[in-house]
């Protein structure tokens, strides 16, 4: 069995092989590999016995199910109004300057991807961002540099 087959097998063993298992399986792959490759999606289709179009169609609907290669750490900055009003642009600029990437891009060492997201549900502590699943709030350019430096050095 290839690595991809094995990964998908472990997820189908855990979540089942029905259409309902599709989302948990896709989520499981993203948690492990940070994105869904064509090979993975085709393998999922095979193991669930549904068409690849159904798998691709479902995956591309959801913004957290990335179908392009992503870094180990995906940074999502909230761009909705309250965060925007409270300094989202300065936060984005601080990250862009530090990592030398723009929104939508991944660092060459594949460690970080920078994205924007809609309301993350932290408006009272704006501006906010997620790094993978972890929320960071009340951000300032200084604070964000501190957080990212820690990721660069220790993770």
């Amino acid at each position: 069995m290839t690595e991809v087959q094995e990964l998908v097998r472990s997820l189908t063993d855990r979540h089942g092989r029905t259409r309902e298992s599709l989302l948990p399986i896709l989520q499981g792959v993203v948690a492990k590999e940070s994105y869904l490759s064509d090979t993975v999606m085709t393998e999922i289709a095979k193991q669930l016995d549904i068409s690849a179009a159904q798998v691709f169609g479902t995956a591309t609907f959801y913004s957290f199910l990335d179908t392009e290669p992503r870094g180990k750490y995906v940074i999502r900055i909230c761009k909705t109004i309250t965060c925007d009003m409270h300094g989202k642009r300065q936060i984005a600029k601080a990250i862009e300057d530090l990592l030398k990437i723009k929104a939508g891009e991944t660092t060459t060492n594949k460690k970080f991807t920078l994205l924007e997201a809609n309301c993350l549900g932290w408006c009272h502590e704006a501006p906010a961002m997620l790094i993978n699943d972890t929320p960071y709030t009340k951000l300032t350019p200084e604070k964000v540099l501190e957080i990212l430096t820690d990721y660069m050095q220790n993770k």
Partner: peptide
């Protein structure tokens, strides 16, 4: 699912 911009009470 709490997605409406400006809602964070369910969390």
């Amino acid at each position: 699912d709490e997605g409406e911009p400006g809602t964070f009470k369910d969390r």
